[in-house]
């Protein structure tokens, strides 16, 4: 495995709701290696985006506890000046909604140039423009000279996403965080964008943190996968192990709930209940216990830890050892059919 790029230790990111702080990311310990694609999977409210924002220092009013080491430097509570040096140069971010992620009143060229300008104030305007055109070409935009002068709303969703990627990679960052980069796109465009990301990763030898809810994309892109539930990582493993031999109940159920395009028309598995809201999370015990009520309470740990099952494969809580799907889940999931 390549060298460590980011090492996160017991990270806790809390937001203020009324007068209390609630942790959206709770006790996350994670290492990101160079030249790997680490997928973070979870449903909305799992804390996956909050984790990504914490790594980029993009939370404005959050309380960050724990440590985030970037190449050995603890940046968890770095100064704004330090963050401005890191962001855009060492780490870039790719967003989900390309239309709202670009300034509607600025031409594409200026928006990409801004990243270059911020980290290399010395290069001339002409040089900057040449580099922007190069970047646009690199991300596969067919007429870069024209696109340079266009506004975001004049481009298609796929083209805009390429512009977002151009902004993120402008300064050859070591870490790329892609937050649901293809959710808003059509499948064929999605395939192209994922292809581009793969190509760029191999070229730049950067690490990509891919946040997604789509397990198909995980299977195609990831080297390692971290599954998040209610602010915590419940399972980490390499992609083969995670998909072929998942251990945590949540991972198992998630994999069963995806309609497969390969045909089998079996009933989809339904995970009962919903991800609890931030302020209603159980703070003690296994956070997933409410979603598997048929399991005996004694199978859970009182203070669930990440257990290293095999080298590199971690699972939270002991409940995985006893987990079985409910026998009566057929009736459960078809509730309402009389």
């Amino acid at each position: 495995m390549d060298e460590e790029l980011v090492k996160i230790k017991q990270l806790k990111t809390s937001f203020r709701v009324l007068d209390d702080y609630y942790a959206a990311v709770d006790d996350v310990t994670l290492t990101i290696y160079k030249n790997e694609v680490l997928a973070i999977v979870g449903e909305s409210g799992s804390g996956k985006s909050a984790l990504a924002f914490s790594i980029m220092g993009l939370h404005n009013r959050a309380k960050i506890e724990g440590e985030i080491y970037y190449r050995g430097e603890n940046i968890a509570n770095a100064s704004p000046g330090r963050w401005n040096k890191l962001r855009g140069r060492e780490m870039g971010m790719i967003f989900q909604d390309s239309l709202s992620a670009l300034n509607p009143l600025m031409i594409i060229g200026t928006q990409i140039e801004e990243t270059l300008l911020l980290h290399n104030p010395k290069i001339s305007a002409r040089e900057r423009k040449i580099r922007v055109i190069d970047l646009l070409m690199k991300v596969g935009i067919p007429r870069p000279e024209k696109t340079y002068y266009q506004y975001p709303h004049e481009l298609s969703g796929g083209m805009r996403q390429r512009v977002i990627i151009a902004i993120a990679i402008a300064n050859q960052p070591q870490l790329l965080i892609a937050d649901e980069p293809t959710t808003a796109l059509d499948v064929t465009i999605q395939a192209q964008i994922l292809d581009l990301l793969r190509q760029l990763k191999n070229e730049m030898r950067a690490a990509i943190v891919l946040i997604t809810h789509d397990l198909g994309i995980v299977a195609e892109m990831a080297d390692r996968v971290a599954v998040m539930y209610a602010g915590q990582i419940v399972e980490i493993a390499d992609v083969y192990t995670l998909i072929e031999n998942p251990l945590h109940p949540y991972t198992k159920m998630l994999l069963k709930s995806v309609p497969s395009s390969s045909g089998a028309k079996s009933r989809l598995h339904v995970i009962q209940g919903v991800v609890p809201a931030l302020h209603k999370l159980p703070r003690e015990g296994c956070r997933f216990r409410g979603r598997i009520p048929w399991m005996d309470a004694s199978v859970h740990e009182s203070n669930p830890m990440l257990h290293e099952v095999r080298p590199g494969h971690y699972v939270r809580c002991t409940c995985y050892q006893y987990f079985h799907f409910p026998d009566k889940y057929k009736e459960e999931s078809s509730h309402g059919t009389h």
């Binding site: 449903e43 909305s44 998630l254 709930s257 995806v258 009933r267 989809l268 339904v270 999931s333 078809s334």
Partner: peptide, 16 residues
């Protein structure tokens, strides 16, 4: 919708 919720709604659509 999220994947798990998606399954819920699709199953339910088949049931009704």
């Amino acid at each position: 919708l999220d994947v798990s919720v998606q399954a819920q709604v699709l199953n339910f659509m088949q049931d009704i």
